Computed example of a mutant assay.
Amino acid sequence: MNKTMNTGNRFLDSLKRVLVRFKDAGFGIKFIKNLPKVADYFSDKNVSILGKSKLLLSFIVTLIYFVFAIDVIPEVLFGPIGFLDDIFVIIWMIGIVNEELSKYSGPQDFSSKSNKKVYKDSNIIDDVTYSIKDDN
């Protein structure tokens, strides 16, 4: 009985983490908005291999899960409840992809002097002029 409770609690904790990721992804809206960044994300040399592999692996796992007829909760036996595991995998993938792409600032603009993409940090303000005046 205790093993069953521990297994159930671990499953519910993982489901909670996935749902929090999906909520942070704006219920998929931010995911759709971030999709155009994927090509720049994979071609950018400043992005770590771990981040790229995490994104690629989530795409591959989701694709494999839907291509092969292996289900954790089969629709044949459980009817509409069998789609819960499919929804779970989609939500997991959307959360992972959105998490990685939202951290990526991407190419902000093109340099006016060349056609090279310039990557800028969104926390840095460029082209600011200031002066200090003395009240005396």
Rank of each mutant, 00 (worst) to 15 (best):
V20D: 01
K23G: 01
D24G: 04
A25G: 12
I29G: 01
I29Y: 07
I29D: 03
I32S: 02
L35I: 12
L35E: 02
K37S: 14
V38Y: 09
A39D: 13
F42K: 09
S43K: 14
D44W: 09
N46T: 10
S48I: 03
I49L: 06
L50E: 06
G51W: 06
K52C: 08
L56Y: 02
L57R: 00
S58H: 00
S58L: 00
T62R: 02
T62V: 06
I64Y: 09
Y65P: 06
F66Y: 11
F68K: 12
F68H: 07
A69G: 14
I70D: 08
D71V: 04
V72W: 08
E75L: 03
L77N: 10
L77F: 07
F78R: 02
G79F: 04
F83Q: 11
L84Q: 04
D86T: 10
D86F: 01
D86L: 12
V89D: 01
V89G: 00
I91R: 04
W92C: 02
M93D: 10
M93C: 12
I94C: 06
G95P: 06
V97F: 04
N98T: 15
N98L: 03
N98K: 02
E99R: 09
E99Q: 13
E100G: 04
E100K: 11
G106E: 10
F110Y: 15
F110W: 12
S111T: 10
K113G: 10
K113I: 14
S114D: 15
K117D: 13
V118N: 13
V118P: 02
V118M: 14
Y119E: 11
Y119C: 14
K120W: 03
D121K: 10
S122M: 08
S122K: 15
